[in-house]
Design a protein around this nucleic acid. Structure first.
Lengths: 143, 143
DNA sequence: TTGTGATTGTTCGCAGCACGAAGTAATTTG
DNA sequence: CAAATTACTTCGTGCTGCGAACAATCACAA
């Protein structure tokens, strides 16, 4: 009797689940997945294109378009970097920041809900292990 | 001293990580993410468009194109349903099945590797909880 | 100081994804 | 048999992500 789903299988399914939630919440905030991811990365500071593309695991050329569209929607601005005239820093606008918070709060709630039915001890252990596993991953989402 | 990353944050980061792995392995097998997901859903049986779109959480119209492209690449075929002349069943071709296995094996290995450094007990507990959390999610990936 | 080479970001063309509205054909239901 | 339902497709739109090619700027070394 196999009630132990393989680890890989569990990871993939969880990912699928979270991904769909992510998209759904994004949708409710009028954000695409890529936009939401970008806003999350910008929550606490402005970031240059090169670094940002590294964080998001995107080619620089892909990021250009993403920032273009987000800028057109007023979520984000390109600021000149005074240190380097080639460079640009992407920063949240007030509107972008507001959208981010709406998104973040709603998503956090929905995700917490996902674990709600677990017994507290199990949930804590799970969360802790989770923290370990993603320890060295980029901070695409902050608390 | 916060060494406990929030649960939501952990979930999002894990998802990001797995997603990138998924894409990378897909790439190595010459599969897009969407194609790989579809092949995984077809691993053990042929499925009609309506049901498949439900499994993958896609609109039917989106699925049409996905199947079109996969069919052009010889990964999949549309078979007539003898019971219902409107309906179609999507089935793996031998090439599709081969690609799926390559993808599945490689991804499983990479994902297991992700948990490899955890102590065995912790890993088992984690996997078990994982199974619970995704219990009612669609089987987008089998063991 | 003047190359030379690296880095920053952009443009372009391309294939693919996902949606919703509208449409066709076959099936079911009343 | 007519009407409602279901299965799938078509079309148009916007978004995504890649790689190749390119301009501007910077850093460093001769």
């Amino acid at each position: 009797m196999k009630d132990t789903l393989g680890a890989a299988s569990g990871l993939v399914r969880l990912t699928f689940l979270v991904q769909n939630l992510y998209a759904e919440v994004g949708r409710a905030c009028d954000l695409t997945v890529a936009q939401a991811q970008m806003l999350c990365s910008l929550s606490d500071r402005s970031i240059g294109m090169a670094e940002l593309s590294g964080l998001l695991c995107l080619e620089r050329s892909s990021l250009t378009g993403l920032v273009d569209r987000a800028q057109q929607r007023g979520l984000v601005v390109r600021e000149d970097d005074p240190q380097d005239r080639r460079a640009v820093k992407v920063a949240l606008t007030p509107a972008g920041s507001a959208a981010l918070h709406r998104f973040h709060d709603e998503l956090t709630e929905r995700l917490d809900h996902l674990l709600q039915e677990l017994p507290a001890t199990e949930r804590d252990r799970f969360t802790q292990t989770l923290g370990r596993v993603v320890a060295d991953a980029p901070a695409v989402f902050a608390d």
